[in-house]
């Protein structure tokens, strides 16, 4: 990338963040706000450095839960959209259930899931899956339905087999939508993990936040939020880099 484009692309958001942080720091200092009420950015960074061991340890736990949850979620969504694609009646059967699963606030389900599946990894993974599979399925099903009927005809008129059509038409057509579904899923999976850890756990960033709040370790809460954001951003850019690689092969 050209130096100029880098500056053009990254300078505005970078400046905006910098200005917000500066304003924050200055107001905390000028209004002499106590750090248990609202820590300044400098306080948060100090906390991050002081307790990096705890934060890193629990970040890894949360990160692991998210990865497992996302992978399972992607597999489930591929299965469901595949079934919807192959069996027309399955769509009618599953759609009301899918919608219902989204109407019930997952937050209210979390305590029940903890009762059923314990406070281990499994209950968190289920919560993450419940959070993330819906946008994945919706994106996939929409993409499958949007494959141009005339393209399908064109493939058929060449005597294409089903497998050839999946590989050469469906896969590349669906890819962009699938990846944008993945991006959404990455970001919201973090929420799922935190909820799971908040309600029943003795580890993970959600748990760190939950126990730090009542102890007025506000800067640790903020530091945890920062770690969560980093996880979300990392995951997001992971998908973006996969996207760039794949779309170089199948550009649109």
């Amino acid at each position: 990338m050209q130096k100029e484009t880098i500056i053009k692309n990254y300078l505005p958001p970078f400046t905006a963040v910098l200005i917000i942080l500066l304003l924050w720091q200055i107001s905390v200092m000028l209004l002499s706000i106590e750090s248990w009420f609202l820590p300044s950015p400098v306080n948060i960074i100090a906390e991050l450095i002081n307790s990096y061991k705890i934060l890193f340890e629990h970040s890894l736990i949360t990160f692991f839960e998210i990865i497992v949850g996302l992978v399972i979620s992607i597999l489930i969504s591929l299965l469901i959209s595949g079934l919807i694609f192959w069996f027309k009646s399955f769509e009618k059967t599953i759609y009301p259930l899918l919608i219902t699963s989204q109407i019930i606030p997952v937050f209210t389900l979390a305590p029940i899931l903890i009762v059923w599946f314990g406070t281990g990894l499994f209950s968190k993974v289920i919560i993450i899956v419940l959070f993330t599979f819906f946008p994945l399925v919706i994106n996939l099903v929409t993409a499958i339905k949007n494959v141009d009927i005339d393209m399908i005809r064109m493939f058929n008129s060449h005597g294409s087999t089903k497998l050839q059509m999946y590989k050469k038409l469906y896969f590349p057509s669906i890819l962009p939508n699938f990846l944008s579904g993945c991006k959404v899923a990455c970001v919201i999976s973090v929420i799922g993990a935190v909820i799971g850890e908040w309600i029943g756990s003795s580890s993970g960033l959600g748990w760190v936040m939950k126990i730090s709040g009542p102890q007025f370790q506000t800067s640790r809460v903020f530091a945890s939020i920062l770690c969560l954001s980093v996880i979300a951003i990392l995951l997001f850019f992971l998908v973006v880099s996969i996207e760039k690689k794949l779309l170089r092969k199948y550009p649109l």
Partner: peptide, 19 residues
């Protein structure tokens, strides 16, 4: 004959794969 063995079909849209 089998589909595509003797006959080619061209539709109104060019139907080029964009990728």
């Amino acid at each position: 004959v089998n589909i595509g063995d003797k006959i080619s079909y061209m539709q109104q849209k060019d139907l080029l794969l964009p990728w």
